[in-house]
Amino acid sequence: MPIDIDVICSRYKKGSREALLPLLQEIQEEAGYLSEEAVVAVGRYVGLPSSKVYGISTFYDHFRFMPKGRYHLQVCGGTTCHIEGAVSLLREIEKLLKIRDGQVTRDGMFSLQVVNCMGACSKAPIIAINGEFHTVLSAGDLALLFDVIRKRA
């Protein structure tokens, strides 16, 4: 989805450093990720070298530099989910989809992200697919779920 970076930029004060993070956040919200062009354009608008903009944006966990898959998987990495076995769930997903945290499958179907606590500790371990929550999943359920999604698409 092409977005107009200049339009988003024009909502913020030119050359203001405080605008940097909100600006990047808004671009990511619209486009789903930060492209190289976006980083360069924002740098130019805020008055910072693009290397610095890239440095700051990689510092924070929130920014991503690859487009999301059609189905974006979020695995909770909170303490409770860890105790309840989120790690084996994550390994299972990695095995099934052949991607790791932060990557996208080759067909662009799935992307995987480990996130901070989603706050549903009583239902741990949980994963979210495009914002829809799934709880108490076994390895078998996962394979089935991915099959269903693949067929639906």
Binding site: M118, G119, A120, C121, S122, K123, I126, F133, T135
Partner: peptide, 8 residues
């Protein structure tokens, strides 16, 4: 709340 939403 967020926790409720996760639970459905």
């Amino acid at each position: 709340g967020s926790c409720g939403i996760v639970a459905g």
